[in-house]
Each structure stands twice: as structure tokens, then as C-alpha cells.
Design a protein around this nucleic acid. Structure first.
Length: 139
DNA sequence: GCCAACGTTGGC
DNA sequence: GCCAACGTTGGC
């Protein structure tokens, strides 16, 4: 199983919006970036991901699961763009902020730190464990 | 195929 | 609200 990070502006699509969709999940649509799309193509059913709020909040707030593999993005006719579906699994007991992540040497290589604009990113197993611990979530 | 212009994103 | 960084677009 692989780990990922999904970034969203809470004013556009928040963790609460994601939770409201329940187990059916929701398309992670609107991605118009090849790198991000390619990561989504690599995702398998059951892969886990962090849900990150950008802008005002700047924190990992929840854990999601891939519940549909990459398929055409329904919000465009342009067949270059694909997306997966994800569903909320559980919130972090305490959100892990960008400041906290930046302060951790073992997390300093995350794309979140290095290229903050990439909206879908891979997360290593060790990074996953560290952030889960910081967030008060059992791995 | 290159490169400049532009729009968007996100941190501060 | 500003500004820097980046990726995409379109003209040549």
C-alpha cells in the first residue's frame, strides 16, 4: 500500500465536505497538473492519504482512502485529465500544521515543504508514521 | 521546439 | 493583500 497527500483549500472543498460524502466518497476532480495526475494514476484501491488544508489553515486534518481508481475527470471534456475517488477514514485527533512539519528534520524532504503548489503528492511510509504519531492517530 | 507571457497557487 | 514560484499556454 502506498501513501499520498491531497491538498485542498478549505473554502473550496474542506475535510467536513469530504466527511459529509461518507463511504461513497467523492471525485478528487479539478486537478490540471500532469505531475499530480500521474500520481493519481499510480494509486491503488485502499491506498491511504492525508487530507491537507492549504491557505488559512495549513495543516493535515484527516486521513482518506482511495475508493476508485483513476478515471476521466467528470468536470471536463478534456480527456487528458483523470482523477480518483477518495473517502474520509478518520480525522486527526490534533491537526499537524505546516509549521510542525517544517520543524521536523525527518519531514523536510516532503514535497509539501519543497514544492508547496503540487496538489497531489506521494508520502513515504516513514513520513506517514511520523505525521500519524504527531496527529494522535494509530498507524 | 522554444520561449515569453500569463494565470494560478499558496505562504507569509 | 502581496509577492514569489511555478506550470501551462500560445505565438513564432
Amino acid at each position: 500500500m502506498k501513501y499520498w497527500l491531497f491538498k485542498s483549500e478549505p473554502s473550496t472543498w474542506s475535510w467536513d465536505d469530504q466527511v459529509a460524502k461518507g463511504n461513497a466518497g467523492e471525485e478528487w476532480d479539478g486537478v490540471r497538473n500532469y505531475q499530480a495526475r500521474n500520481f493519481m494514476r499510480e494509486m491503488a484501491l485502499g491506498d491511504r492519504g492525508f487530507f491537507y488544508h492549504s491557505q488559512s489553515e495549513k495543516a493535515v486534518v484527516g486521513i482518506v482512502e482511495v475508493c476508485a481508481k483513476a478515471h476521466p475527470d467528470s468536470t471536463t471534456d478534456d480527456d487528458r485529465w483523470e482523477c480518483v475517488d477518495i473517502r474520509a477514514v478518520e480525522p486527526l485527533a490534533s491537526p499537524v500544521t505546516l509549521a510542525t512539519i517544517k520543524a521536523r528534520p525527518e519531514l523536510a524532504d516532503m514535497p509539501l515543504v519543497r514544492s508547496p503548489r503540487l496538489s497531489v503528492q506521494p508520502v513515504s511510509a516513514s513520513e506517514w508514521q511520523v505525521i500519524c504519531q504527531l496527529g494522535g492517530v494509530e498507524v
